[in-house]
């Protein structure tokens, strides 16, 4: 009887995700976006080891993943995240603005705009690139099907949209009307608008829809590994955007939980050699020049525009392009 009971409680504990032998001294909740699942699984284990060695304290980091917008909204509505690691600064701005959980200048607190790793947007095409898609200008041609998620719900999709816009803007000597025309032509070629980056990857990979997937570089590499290099390949456009997924401590929450020390150490560890190596292993571009040099062979260099210089920052980009009545609404209106 007691054996059965303990088996049952062990099963229950395992089901709930607690290993019964480990007693956590501190627990952190990291609320993140869709494609960082694997990265943070690895990193959390590494940080726990590091923290135990350094302080003797056992720290458990729980993760929550989903579309960046939805995740930020959950934090605003009361999900007690100690740290947030989201797809773009705008969503963390929203947490600061709407819920006042962290100061307005949060992005200045850590190095490199609080983004310990970067990524960019690349093309994933069918093996052999049958439609010969080499650059953004090829995606607006009639008969090409482009897969990208909805920029209204997905952070990654906003980077996709802005990368395409940045290219068109440059090609047309900064003519915004022409950039809008090519953006319109691009989205006319989109047959399915998923709500998140993973959804789009599935549509392209599992359902076999579309000729090209606009994807985070790390998602594209992951897709290569998952479905095989004999089925798809990565194409680098001549120009893309520097995507900086930022991280921050949520001040009001860590002060309430008394976890500020651990939370800050957690984020700082992302900048350490080990943290940077883990990021590189999961196909995020590390900031550390030494790690980048050592492990960076897989990250080819390409011309990257930044959101600040090409669009005047997230707040402005969001307002012009993605708010209701913005340009994205205009170009997708029938």
């Amino acid at each position: 009887m007691s054996l059965r009971l303990s088996t049952a409680s062990l099963t229950l504990a395992l089901l709930l995700g607690f290993a019964p032998s480990v007693k956590a001294d501190a627990t952190l909740l990291n609320v993140s976006y869709d494609p960082t699942r694997e990265l943070y699984q690895d990193f959390n284990a590494a940080f726990a080891r590091h923290w135990k060695d350094k302080t003797g304290e056992v720290v458990t980091v729980n993760q929550s993943h989903g579309g960046a917008g939805k995740q930020a909204r959950a934090v605003i509505d009361g999900l007690e995240a100690d740290v947030v690691t989201l797809a773009l600064a705008y969503d963390i701005d929203a947490i600061s603005e709407k819920a006042g959980l962290l100061p307005k200048d949060w992005q200045k607190r850590l190095a490199h705009n609080s983004s310990p790793y970067t990524s960019t947007i690349v093309f994933l095409v069918r093996k052999g690139n049958p439609k010969a898609l080499k650059d953004w200008s090829d995606l607006v041609k009639p008969g090409v099907q482009v897969i990208t998620p909805n920029p209204k719900t997905s952070g990654g999709a906003r980077w996709n949209y802005l990368a395409a816009w940045g290219y068109a803007q440059k090609q047309n000597g900064n003519d915004q009307a022409k950039a809008q025309d090519s953006s319109k032509a691009l989205y006319a070629n989109v047959p399915v608008l998923d709500t998140g980056a993973r959804g789009s990857t599935n549509t392209f990979v599992q359902r076999g829809i579309g000729d090209v997937l606009l994807a985070w570089e790390n998602e594209a590499f992951l897709a290569l590994d998952e479905i095989g290099r004999d089925k798809v390949e990565i194409v680098l456009p001549s120009l893309s955007i520097l995507a900086e997924p930022p991280v921050t401590v949520v001040d009001k929450v860590v002060d309430k939980h008394g976890t500020r020390k651990q939370a800050e150490a957690y984020l700082n560890y992302l900048y350490s050699k080990e943290g940077q190596e883990i990021a590189a292993k999961h196909f995020y571009r590390p900031r550390d020049p030494e790690v980048l040099k050592r492990l960076g062979a897989r990250f080819p260099s390409l011309t990257l525009i930044t959101i600040d210089e090409a669009f005047g920052g997230w707040q402005k980009a969001q307002k012009t392009h993605f708010e209701d009545g913005g340009i994205f609404d205009a170009i997708t209106r029938k």
Partner: peptide, 23 residues
């Protein structure tokens, strides 16, 4: 659904989209 605005976008999705824009 393809979730394309004006074509295959259902009203509940539009509600979710508004929410994700903090609207």
């Amino acid at each position: 659904a393809g979730n394309m605005p004006g074509q295959t976008e259902i009203a509940p999705l539009l509600i979710i989209i508004k929410l994700e824009q903090y609207n």
